[in-house]
Design a protein around this nucleic acid. Structure first.
Length: 273
DNA sequence: AACAAGACCTGTAAGC
DNA sequence: TGCTTACAGGTCTTGT
């Protein structure tokens, strides 16, 4: 489901839903079998803590609960919603956080590719976070010089390389295709055959696309919703994603589709090379 | 080190 | 109507 803009949208939505530093009264796990088993000690660890803040690293949400942190990845189908009571629980509601005076914050995830863990300290050193690349919107660490050092030696397609979370985080299957279209680069092109000048265009394109998608509240396709339940709007701005056979809005060329790294990829056969 | 493929899951849509 | 297959926003693991 979520790439960086969707996770950022969920983060903002959750902050709005929970209000000011709510107390966690209890955590009930209905199904521990997410991508990794949810720790059995999670209720004991979080009961009585306040959610001080929610931040994001890559596609991970990090709840700051004072002296302890909750780490959450939404996988493909993870979502959060708030309910007034527990009568409204549905299939695939795997975790229920009872928040004092707020209600029940529910983690829903049909495919169970998401994860929930609790961390005592040094969040950045967590096994899943330690090897992540820079944030795409961080101009100091994600820029043309940096990305070129990563791409010029790699034989794989440029699309696969920018989706590698060790190279840059947050770019998933939709925004990789959209960013490459904006930069005029064929997603099938070997990363090492993209000139530095075009890598510069790509850096700007990734920043622009992700920034615009965050502003639009992410993309709603299939079942993604903001934490408040409303739709994102960026899907209306797709130039190539899921537009196979249609006309390029920029140049009138035809949108093509192929599979790269087992993922559907889309590009315009006229304005991308 | 880098890469391709397999694995983990369920729901939905398409094809027969 | 029902069965089978392909595919879906992610990413870790395995084998070359």
């Amino acid at each position: 489901m979520p790439e960086l803009p969707e996770v950022e949208t969920v983060r903002c939505g959750l902050l709005a839903l929970i209000g000011k530093k709510p107390l966690i009264k209890s955590v009930k796990i209905r199904n521990r079998s997410l991508r990794y088993p949810v720790p059995t000690r999670i209720n004991q660890a979080l009961k009585g803590k306040h959610i001080v803040d929610i931040s994001r690293r890559a596609k991970y949400l990090i709840w700051n609960c004072g002296d302890i942190y909750l780490l959450n990845h939404l996988g493909m189908t993870g979502s959060w919603r708030l309910e007034k009571n527990t009568k409204a629980l549905r299939k695939h509601d795997h975790a229920v956080f009872e928040l004092d005076k707020i209600g029940y914050l529910i983690y829903h995830d049909p495919r169970r590719f998401g994860m929930i863990d609790v961390i005592k300290e040094n969040v950045d050193e967590h096994k899943l976070l330690a090897k992540l690349g820079p944030e795409p919107l961080d101009k100091n660490n994600f820029n043309t010089d940096y990305l070129y050092t990563q791409t010029h030696k790699r034989k794989a397609s440029i699309k696969q390389v920018i989706m590698d979370q060790a190279v840059v985080v947050g770019v998933g299957n939709i925004y990789a295709s959209e960013s490459l279209h904006r930069a005029g680069i064929d997603p099938r092109r070997s990363a090492m055959r993209v000139s530095k000048k075009r890598i510069d265009k790509l850096v700007q394109a990734i920043r622009h696309i992700l920034g615009a998608a965050i502003k639009a509240g992410g993309s709603t396709i299939s079942d993604f919703r903001q934490a408040g339940g409303s739709d994102g709007y960026f899907q209306h701005h797709f130039q190539v994603y899921e537009r196979e056979g249609e006309t390029c809005k920029k140049c009138g060329g035809q949108i093509k589709q192929c599979v790269l790294g087992q993922r559907s990829s889309y590009w315009c056969n006229s304005c991308q090379s």
